[in-house]
Structure formats: structure tokens, C-alpha cells
């Protein structure tokens, strides 16, 4: 870990101003990902801005009947929130399927959205990684890629986004709320928040320099059968091999987001439109253009098989 300086922000606007003033700074919230990365010198911030004490730890109803989740709401608290459990069950289920109880007690809503990939080459500073060190190459391509992305990949990067929560947020059409140093708010649809790797896999979100996440809003509840299905070899404490977040309506319509398959929570409108045609049609549309490696090609049929089971479960 490199030496760093530390400050505690006293407002969201001040936090944004502090990071705008120091390009080598990082926000620190739960620290469940950042501290590990700092110890390995994958992240080397010279300055940490502690945003834990800004009062952004509340879950509130919004005027339009939706919900606003403060950026610092802990995963445990969000999963246990009664309204979330009743009206956004897919989110609660996604949250409790992730990490461990101890980690969820610390991990925050915004931090979860911003967690870095678990690609093993990203984690090893002796190996090339365009995400960690732009231009150095991608060791994962042609390497151990079983857990990595099958769609939306580039010849620069095949990393996945590891979050469960974000997959549920994606299916719920969440919006990320930010503030900049001037105090101006911006609302970023979650579809536009995470990026595909392209030629700049080091740039993972659409956040601008000096922008600070204050919360996530959810539209008013959409009802339906809400399912989060996470597939993994180990029963707990494992990142998703693949995961499916879905909301299926009695009229046969539905929406689908997939985790463990891409650099961002994966959702395709054309796939949603085929909900009434069943799992195979949805999976085919969602994974048209998939470009897996030999080691992770199984994920594509796995998604289809799992989705079929999810449809069956929803009808049961």
C-alpha cells in the first residue's frame, strides 16, 4: 500500500469538489474492494476522501412512488428494507446472494456499482492488463477465462462486472444520481452508467471527473414475479458464473438482465420484447453476437437452461 492522505468530506458537494481538485484521489466508503486493491497496488490513490458521514445512508420513498437509496446505504440494510423486500424483491434477493454477511455489512450501494472486475489477471500486477495498465495487453484472452465475459467483449478486455446488485438495478431501470463540484445534479440511467470495454477498458463508467454518486433511485414498483437466480459451483460466497434478474408479468411480458456475462449488467430490449415467446427466444435475442472463449462458451447454453428454469419457477 502506498502512503496516502485522508480527509473526511462534510457534504456531497464538498466531496465532489475535493475529488475534482485532486485527480489522484479516490472516495472511500465501505472499503471492501478498494482497500484490497490498494494493498496490491492495483489502485494507488494518493488521497482518500471519506464519504461515510454525509447522511447518505437513508432509504426513502420518492414523490412519484418510487424509492431513493442513499449512496452509502449498506448492502445488508438495503436487502432487509421492508419496502425493498416487498416491492423490489429482485433487488433484495440479488443483494443477499452476494459476498458474505460481513462484507454486506460494510459494502455500500454506490461502492457496489463501482466495484472492479475479479478477472485474475487484473489482480496480478506481473501480468499485462489493459484495464489496470492501458496498452499493456490482455492476458485473459488466450488464458484462464472460464469466469469471464461472453458478450460485449473487445480484443482489449473480456472482464466481467462482478456485482449481483447492479444486475437487479438494471432490470428495475434504476437511475444513478450524482452531484458535481458546482452542486449540479445529474441523473444517469443505469443502462448508460456502466460501459463496455471497447478500446478503453480502464474507463468503466460514464461518471465525469469530479462527479460524486449521492444515490440510486428506483421507479415506482412494477409488481410481477421477481426472481434473481445466481448460478455457481460453490453454494455461497462466490461470484456468479451467470446470474439472471427478471420481472415477469402475468400478461407474459417481462424483462431480463444478466450478470457474470459482460463488462456491465447485460440487458437487451429485443430480448425483453420476446418474453412471451419463452426462454429460448429471450436467450437467443439477449446473446445474439456472443463471442465467448473456448473456456466460457458453456455460459451461453447455461443462460438458456437457467432461464427456462426461471420461467418454470415463475409459473409454479
Amino acid at each position: 500500500m502506498k502512503p496516502f492522505t485522508y480527509e473526511r468530506a462534510d457534504s456531497a458537494k464538498a466531496a465532489a469538489a475535493a475529488i475534482a481538485a485532486n485527480p489522484n484521489a479516490k472516495f472511500i466508503a465501505g472499503g471492501t474492494n478498494l482497500l484490497d486493491l490498494m494493498k496490491l497496488q492495483i489502485e494507488t490513490p494518493a488521497h482518500l476522501i471519506d464519504v461515510n458521514h454525509l447522511g447518505l445512508d437513508k432509504v426513502e420513498k420518492t414523490r412519484d412512488g418510487g424509492m431513493r437509496i442513499g449512496a452509502l446505504v449498506r448492502n445488508t440494510d438495503l436487502a432487509a428494507d421492508r419496502t425493498v423486500r416487498r416491492d423490489y424483491a429482485v433487488l433484495s434477493r440479488a443483494l443477499v446472494s452476494g459476498a458474505s454477511g460481513q462484507l454486506r455489512n460494510k459494502a455500500t450501494t454506490a461502492g457496489n456499482l463501482l466495484q472492479r472486475t475479479r478477472c485474475p489477471y487484473f489482480y496480478d500486477t506481473t501480468k499485462p492488463c489493459n484495464k489496470r495498465q492501458p496498452g499493456s495487453g490482455c492476458a485473459a484472452i488466450g488464458g484462464y477465462s472460464r469466469s469471464l465475459a461472453v458478450i460485449g467483449v473487445s480484443d482489449q478486455c473480456i472482464a466481467t462486472h462482478p456485482s449481483d446488485m447492479a444486475v437487479a438495478m438494471r432490470v428495475l431501470d434504476a437511475t444513478v444520481e450524482t452531484v458535481n463540484p458546482d452542486g449540479a445534479k445529474r441523473m444517469i440511467p443505469i443502462a448508460d452508467f456502466h460501459r463496455l470495454p471497447g478500446t478503453t477498458p480502464n474507463i468503466e463508467t460514464s461518471l465525469q471527473p469530479g462527479e460524486f454518486i449521492t444515490g440510486v433511485t428506483l421507479p415506482k414498483p412494477i409488481g410481477g414475479m421477481q426472481i434473481y437466480r445466481k448460478v455457481r459451483d460453490r453454494a455461497s460466497y462466490a461470484f456468479a458464473t451467470i446470474s439472471i434478474a427478471t420481472v415477469l408479468q402475468p400478461d407474459g411480458s417481462g424483462r431480463f438482465a444478466f450478470g457474470g456475462v459482460a463488462h456491465k449488467p447485460w440487458r437487451v430490449e429485443a430480448a425483453d420484447a420476446r418474453a412471451s415467446q419463452g426462454a429460448a427466444a429471450v436467450a437467443t435475442a439477449a446473446f445474439a453476437g456472443a463471442n465467448p472463449t473456448a473456456q466460457n462458451a458453456f455460459k451461453v447454453p447455461l443462460v438458456q437452461r437457467t432461464l427456462a428454469a426461471v420461467f418454470t419457477e415463475a409459473k409454479a
Binding site: 475479479r118 484462464y144 469466469s147 460466497y237
Partner: peptide, 14 residues
């Protein structure tokens, strides 16, 4: 490659 406990899996209680 998978040289940490996040990627080298041993059974958990579950």
C-alpha cells in the same frame, strides 16, 4: 492464475 481465496474455491459452510 487463481492464487487467492476469492478464485481458488474451497467449500464454505453452505
Amino acid at each position: 492464475v487463481n492464487h487467492d481465496m476469492a478464485e481458488y474455491h474451497v467449500p464454505v459452510h453452505a
